[in-house]
């Protein structure tokens, strides 16, 4: 299935640097996703623990610090995986954004991890994008990355058939190749 962008302005802005509002919302959505992953993992671990090591089912109540730390690391890992693979986390995909290197290529895994760490630690650094002429946040400046509008992921683009392989002449035995 292929998608089309109907809005001409949005079509025009594809591939250009994204602004602070889109990026903030995307980051907010990513924090929500990390929280949901934490709740899901917590519930599964709790149920399994109670089944094998306890006589009754109970709802765990971890400390705030533990929860904050767990969500922090889940967020870092989740963002690293998203940005290091296609450059899109779920939040970024929702807002039609993609994180790439400043030369337009995909992020290598270590840069993705570093950027995720910076984002999780220093999320107000995003505000720099509001003032910077190139919409760069602190994380972008440090990791040399860019966030661009790219609404349609590769999987939803029109697929073109690969050009037919041109048969190359093969020299038979005893013949000299041309």
């Amino acid at each position: 299935m292929s998608r089309l962008i109907r809005n001409p302005r949005a079509q025009e802005l594809q591939g250009s640097r994204a602004g602070v509002a889109s990026r903030s919302l995307a980051f907010g959505a990513d924090i929500g996703v990390a929280f949901l992953i934490y709740v899901l993992i917590g519930a599964i671990v709790s149920v399994l623990w109670d089944l094998f090591f306890s006589s009754k089912l109970s709802i765990p109540r971890p400390s705030g610090w533990f929860s904050a730390g767990a969500i922090f690391w889940i967020l870092v890992i989740y963002l690293s995986l998203g940005w290091g693979s296609t450059g899109r986390s779920l939040g970024k995909q929702l807002m039609g954004l993609r994180v790439v290197r400043s030369d337009g290529r995909s992020l290598p895994p270590h840069t993705a991890f570093l950027r995720a760490l910076f984002c999780a630690v220093l999320y107000p650094g995003l505000l720099l994008a509001l003032f910077d002429r190139r919409n760069r946040s602190v994380q972008d400046v440090v990791c040399k990355t860019v966030v661009v509008y790219d609404w349609i992921p590769e999987s939803a683009r029109p697929r073109l058939l690969a050009p037919a392989a041109v048969a190359t002449p093969v020299a038979r035995s005893g013949q000299q190749p041309a």
């Binding site: 591939g15 640097r17 790439v100 337009g104 995909s106 002429r133 590769e154």
Partner: peptide, 22 residues
């Protein structure tokens, strides 16, 4: 900020139709 020049939002090297997987 009384900035006169427009923001540089174009990322010249980026290919929207390019592959997303390294």
């Amino acid at each position: 900020l009384r900035r006169k020049e427009l923001r540089d939002l174009v990322l010249a090297d980026y290919d929207v139709a390019g592959s997303e997987i390294r």
